[in-house]
Design a protein around this nucleic acid. Structure first.
Lengths: 132, 132
DNA sequence: TATTGACTTAGAGTTTCTCTCAAGCTATAA
DNA sequence: TTATAGCTTGAGAGAAACTCTAAGTCAATA
C-alpha cells in the first residue's frame, strides 16, 4: 500500500492533483489507515494511470467521473464503457496527428532560424511579414 | 484581409479565444478598419498558427508573449528565438511520446472490453480490481 | 424603417488545477 | 521529555486560460 507521495512518484501526477482528484470523487475506493492517511493499492495506482490517461487526451473531469460510475455499476455498462474507450482512442489519434503537424511547423521554423544564423539569408521580419 | 470569423475558420481557433489572445497582446500588428473591425492579413494568419502551435504544445501565454516581443525586437534576438523553437520542439516530442504511451493503454483497455463483450471472460471489476 | 447579423468591449463565470496554511501524527535526536 | 523534521490531512485562496454574456455599433437587406 502506498501513500500519496509514493503514488505521485509512480504515476507522475502531483500530490496536489491527486488530492484534488480524490476530493472530486475520482478515488472512491481508496482506503485510509487509522490516522486518516490515504493508502493506495497497486490496482488503485492502475486506476490513477487510467484517469491520467483520460485527462491527458482531453476528457474532462465530469466525463471521467461518469466513467468511474459506470465501472462501479458493473457488467451492464460494459458496452457503454467500451464505446467511451473507442471514442477516447479516436480523440487521442486526432491529437497525435495534430501534434505531428505542429512538429512539422516547428521544424520549418528551426530551419528558417538556422539559415538566418548561418548568414545565408537576412531576417526579413516586420509586423507584416510571415517569417516570424 | 480577414475578419475574426474567417480567421477562426481558417485556423480552427474559436473567435472567443482569438479575441482573448488579441486582448492579451498576441496580435499587436493586426489592423482595424474605420469601424474598428479587426482585419487579419495572410501573414497575420500565419502568426495565429504559430501561436496556436506554441500553445498546443504547452507553452504558456507569458512565454508566447515573450516570444513575440523578441520577434518585434528584430535581428539581435534570432539566436534566442531559435533556442525557444528548439526547446518547444523537444517539448512537443515529449508530448508525442507520452500520447503514444497513452494510446497503448487505451488499446489494451479496448481489447479487454472486447473480450468481455464477446463473453470470452467475465467482468471481474470490483473496487479493488485493476481491470477497470 | 425595422430587422438581421457580424462585429466590438467589458467583465462575469468556469474549469482545473496549484499553492498556502494550520493542524495532526510519528520517529529520531538532544 | 521536549523538540525538530518530515510526512500527512482538509479548507480555502489564487491563478491560468479560456468561455460566455450583455450591451452596444454599424451596414446590408426586407
Amino acid at each position: 500500500m502506498y501513500t500519496i507521495k509514493e503514488v505521485s512518484e509512480k504515476t507522475e501526477v502531483s500530490e496536489h492533483t491527486l488530492r484534488f482528484w480524490a476530493k472530486i470523487g475520482f478515488f472512491p475506493f481508496v482506503k485510509r489507515d487509522k490516522n486518516n492517511i490515504r493508502l493506495f493499492s497497486d490496482s488503485d495506482i492502475d486506476w490513477v494511470k487510467i484517469v491520467k490517461c483520460l485527462r491527458s487526451v482531453g476528457i474532462d473531469n465530469k466525463s471521467v467521473k461518469k466513467y468511474i460510475e459506470l465501472c462501479i455499476k458493473g457488467d451492464s455498462t460494459i458496452k457503454e464503457r467500451y464505446n467511451i474507450i473507442l471514442e477516447t482512442k479516436k480523440k487521442a489519434q486526432g491529437q497525435l496527428d495534430e501534434l505531428k503537424k505542429q512538429l512539422e511547423l516547428l521544424e520549418f521554423k528551426e530551419k528558417y532560424y538556422k539559415s538566418l544564423i548561418n548568414g545565408k539569408s537576412k531576417d526579413i521580419w516586420n509586423p507584416m511579414n510571415k517569417s516570424i
